[in-house]
Design a protein around this nucleic acid. Structure first.
Lengths: 198, 198
DNA sequence: GGTGCAGTTCACGCGGTCTTGAACTATATG
DNA sequence: CATATAGTTCAAGACCGCGTGAACTGCACC
């Protein structure tokens, strides 16, 4: 896709790194970006992942200013990112005794982290979907003349949502994710003639 | 994060549907949109989900033109959406004997569907991340003076990625997702003074 | 009170993605 | 072969989220 920074050819990659790299070691940069990519893939902001990764790798709490410099972000941006992360329960704000500025530390218990996030984000969303589907089902049932087969499909979707929601809630409580029952219900389909693949 | 755009609350979802809904029954519209939202949340296009949902609910294969009308999409858009879905193995293109146009049918085996998608999308992505982290680890080890504690954290991240990748691959093979070993490794952390929430 | 630094908020612009619509190709039908 | 209909491709534009940077608040210390 983008590739207009490679005009120099494969010759000398490291020598002409744009400007100041802040202070990030190369290995840190790679790791931080990798996490950023995962997180983005998950539907969060890339930089949220990068900030968390930096804090996690460093181990010790950093100030907003340090993060700003290390990751080359703007002041305002860091502020918002940190606030988001704090709300997710993914970092913690700590005040060192003699220091005048806040510092931020990554939550290191990944299980707790994932639990938290699912609780605040996924669960609510899934519940919402489940409700919508239930509503659709209710409406559909109140109308005559709908082929039972279609209703069945709609019901299948609702129960899928219900199962997922249940599995998530259970995961939040027990930290154990069990999806065995979720998809089992749907192992292929009875009643519809299998189509041949083209 | 994204998600505050969907239709109204459970109160009046169907009442103020924009303009002409084509021919979609209200309950269909709700269900279709619900799926669209899920799919969008998952990182696909909203309309990909809507198209699949429509086909799934209808049961019988539809033509591109019908989809276009039902969901009020453009011709070109439908064409691309269908092609995407077909590549994912999420719908199938069928040619009815006497009909001159292609028709499209939803894959009804949800397990196979999810397997497919994970295979093409997630697995490759996770592998990529794993490789990046491994690279970072390699680089970090070749440099002296890095606190062992930091290396340990980096290693933790890599093994997490490895475990996830393994779990996914296993899921593709067996249709059984087992994450018990994935997060267990990370149950909290020794060495860092945890405590006090803000 | 004044100076300086930490942190927050927000309008704006950039960049990316999705959809459209029109031009084009392919395929059937008389 | 001519015509119509189905399907594809792609450039242009609409749309939307993100990060920036500047203005602002709050706080500490002199």
């Amino acid at each position: 896709m983008k590739g207009y920074l490679w005009t120099g050819g494969p010759g000398s990659p490291a020598s002409e790194v744009p400007a100041q790299e802040g202070k990030l070691a190369p290995w840190e940069a790679i790791a931080v970006d990798a996490v950023g990519n995962v997180i983005e893939f998950w539907g969060f902001k890339r930089n949220q992942g990068r900030v968390w990764a930096l804090l996690y790798l460093r181990g010790e709490p950093l100030t907003a200013g340090e993060i700003e410099r290390e990751l080359d972000l703007s002041k305002g941006g860091v502020s918002m990112l940190l606030r988001d992360l704090e709300r997710w329960g993914v970092i913690q704000r700590v005040r060192l005794p003699q220091d005048s500025a806040w510092r931020y530390a990554a939550e290191t218990d990944l299980v707790r982290m994932v639990t938290h996030v699912i609780e605040e984000r996924e669960a609510g969303f899934v519940a919402r979907i489940r409700a919508d589907l239930a509503e659709a089902r209710r409406l559909a049932q109140s109308v005559t003349g709908i082929p039972g087969e279609r209703l069945a499909r709609l019901e299948k979707m609702t129960t899928l949502a219900e199962h997922v929601e249940r599995a998530l809630r259970l995961f939040i409580k027990t930290s154990r994710l069990d999806v065995s029952g979720v998809l089992a219900v749907f192992r292929d389909e009875a009643g519809t003639p299998r189509r041949e693949k083209r």
